[in-house]
């Protein structure tokens, strides 16, 4: 019994991890773009970006998933997005906003003198960003990023509101079909293992960057 439950839950875990990885792939670069927007010298762009970030961070992700899935159809009579796509879009937008604030904090915490040192050495803006500040930013954002990654793993459970199959859904299916509740509790072990691996990876990465201060 344990074996067959485990195999079923592993299927759910695969879907969960797919959402996790794809969210990161799109939300990390988008977050960087948004962080540039929220630091822009153009007041309207900065205002717009910060308003969007405020709305996205200020409302529940679960509601955002429901809106992305149902609103286009209800408001504009558009065909529904595939469930997984709708879930992914909501996660990418939501997490990109959180990431953007982490990036902004990291970028703004690099002392001005670092940019100026690059400037007086004749470097271009791109060279200063990639060769001077980027690694310093990365070092600073590793701890808050590890928090977000871990939260993301667990947040994937929210997509069941639009009936996307994932780990919790699979666990719950045993309640419906066999009246078993323990497989649902058992799903926690899977999250714990994934987050254990993430914690180790982040710890290793932090150590790697320990060579400078």
């Amino acid at each position: 019994m344990l074996m067959s439950v485990t195999l079923t839950l592993l299927e759910g875990l695969a879907a969960t991890m797919e959402l996790f990885v794809l969210t990161l792939v799109f939300a990390l670069p988008l977050g960087l773009v948004i962080s540039f927007g929220s630091m822009s010298r153009l007041t309207p762009l900065r205002g717009l970006t910060r308003t969007v970030v405020w709305i996205i961070r200020g409302t529940p992700l679960m509601i955002q998933i429901l809106i992305i899935f149902y609103a286009p159809g209800l408001l504009f009579k558009l065909p529904l997005l595939p469930r997984f796509t709708a879930a992914l879009v909501s996660f990418v937008i939501n997490y990109a906003c959180y990431f953007s604030e982490i990036f902004r904090g990291g970028i703004q915490s690099v002392p001005r003198g670092q940019y100026e040192a690059g400037q007086v050495l004749g470097m271009t803006k791109g060279q200063i960003f990639f060769k001077v500040t980027l690694l310093q930013v990365i070092k600073r954002i590793v701890p808050p990023m590890s928090n977000e990654f871990i939260t993301l793993v667990k947040d994937t459970a929210l997509v069941r509101v639009i009936a996307v199959y994932e780990l919790i859904w699979m666990g719950e299916s045993f309640v419906r079909s066999k009246g078993l509740i323990w497989p649902l509790f058992y799903t926690a072990v899977f999250y714990l293992v994934v987050n254990g691996i993430l914690t180790l990876l982040f710890g290793w990465f932090e150590k790697k960057l320990d060579y400078f201060k």
Partner: peptide
């Protein structure tokens, strides 16, 4: 301006070395 800066070098009060 970037090229013109190369006529001058600047040593800062707070060094501003690249830590990495």
């Amino acid at each position: 301006v970037r090229k013109k800066r190369l006529h001058f070098g600047l040593v800062f009060q707070s060094f501003n070395l690249f830590p990495q």
